[in-house]
Amino acid sequence: MGKSLEEEVYKFNHEKISLYGLLVLFFAMLYNIVSGKTIERSNLSYGFGAIEWIPLIIIAVGSAFFAMEYKNRTILTMLYKSTSKLKIYLAKFLVIFLYSIVLTVVAILLTFLFSFLFTSHKYDWLTTINGHSLIFDLLINMLGAIIYSFFITGLSFMLCMLTRNNAVVVCIGIVLAFFGAGFSGALMRSFPEAVSIIKWNPMSMIFISQQLTRTSLISTSHLLDSELIIANIAYGLIFVVFGYYLFKKRRV
């Protein structure tokens, strides 16, 4: 497993998609700043929109990272050199998940930088408001983004194996990011008698990006913070297992 992971890390570091992901994050956060009239405290706590962009970048980069093996036919060499398809699949999964952590750390650093450049020290990172300091809210929201990235990484790999079309995977990711929470909430409002079941649907998992610091969202997601964390991890593991099954059965 260690050798497979080392090879995937080396391969990923030499692919331009990892750099593109960082550039997209940078410009997306910058756009969030220049397109708004004022910078609110919530903008900083959400990393200038980074909590929304990181999952999108992960689903695009993750699916592309796997799809290119089939496009370039390098998957044949990988399967020939390795005795375990599971090691290949898990190594790729770990690389993308670790990349999501890197994106999160970069987003935190950029948030501090942009705050220094654009807010003129308007907000104190350590001042407590409603029981939370600004830096606490930022770090907790970013932790939520990492947990959701585990869900997204598993989903992107599974969809890549299921659809075999990178564009379709990215489109599904965009739909989940921009409409998932709204559709899930509408579904629960439409069928209140089935909320106890509907609240566990995959589209509700995105609430973790904001709910950890906004308890008011519990009335919309109908899930406690602990339930959201467990559900995201559980779904991620389910997607990993199903994705590996499809990978193992896929013809090359």
Rank of each mutant, 00 (worst) to 15 (best):
85 K>G: 11
79 L>A: 10
97 F>Y: 11
85 K>P: 10
31 Y>W: 09
70 Y>C: 01
45 S>Q: 04
120 S>Q: 13
47 G>P: 03
97 F>S: 03
122 K>A: 05
42 S>M: 06
99 Y>S: 13
123 Y>C: 03
80 Y>T: 07
85 K>N: 11
77 T>Y: 15
105 V>R: 10
114 F>N: 04
106 V>G: 10
71 K>G: 13
68 M>H: 12
93 F>R: 06
55 P>G: 08
109 L>P: 13
80 Y>S: 13
79 L>I: 07
102 V>C: 03
111 T>S: 14
97 F>E: 08
114 F>G: 07
104 T>F: 13
59 I>C: 11
47 G>N: 10
113 L>R: 04
80 Y>Q: 14
121 H>P: 04
70 Y>T: 01
109 L>M: 06
100 S>N: 08
124 D>F: 06
37 K>V: 03
59 I>M: 04
94 L>S: 13
103 L>C: 14
124 D>A: 02
29 M>Q: 10
82 S>V: 01
31 Y>K: 02
103 L>G: 12
59 I>H: 06
49 G>F: 07
60 A>M: 10
34 V>S: 12
110 L>H: 13
112 F>T: 02
112 F>K: 08
37 K>A: 09
52 E>M: 09
54 I>K: 08
54 I>E: 04
58 I>D: 05
84 S>I: 05
37 K>T: 05
115 S>P: 03
117 L>A: 00
26 F>S: 00
84 S>N: 09
41 R>I: 00
30 L>C: 12
71 K>N: 07
103 L>W: 09
41 R>P: 02
50 A>D: 04
56 L>G: 09
34 V>Y: 15
110 L>V: 11
125 W>C: 10
62 G>A: 05
47 G>W: 12
38 T>R: 15
51 I>Y: 11
65 F>E: 07
102 V>D: 10
82 S>Q: 01
83 T>C: 06
58 I>Q: 05
70 Y>D: 09
112 F>Q: 15
32 N>C: 06
68 M>C: 12
107 A>D: 12
81 K>Y: 14
102 V>K: 03
42 S>D: 07
27 F>I: 07
74 T>H: 12
64 A>H: 11
73 R>Y: 06
60 A>L: 06
120 S>P: 03
87 K>V: 00
125 W>L: 14
66 F>N: 05
60 A>I: 07
94 L>W: 12
115 S>T: 02
58 I>Y: 02
113 L>S: 06
48 F>H: 00
123 Y>D: 06
98 L>W: 01
61 V>R: 10
76 L>E: 15
90 L>P: 01
57 I>D: 13
73 R>S: 02
100 S>T: 02
71 K>E: 08
113 L>F: 11
60 A>E: 05
86 L>F: 15
120 S>E: 08
33 I>N: 11
87 K>C: 09
41 R>C: 02
113 L>V: 07
97 F>D: 01
120 S>A: 15
26 F>N: 04
98 L>M: 10
47 G>D: 14
69 E>G: 00
57 I>V: 05
81 K>F: 14
44 L>V: 14
112 F>G: 13
29 M>I: 01
54 I>N: 05
112 F>H: 11
97 F>P: 01
56 L>I: 01
58 I>W: 04
122 K>D: 02
107 A>L: 11
111 T>H: 15
58 I>S: 05
64 A>R: 12
28 A>S: 11
105 V>H: 12
108 I>M: 11
32 N>G: 09
25 L>C: 09
74 T>I: 03
120 S>M: 10
30 L>Y: 14
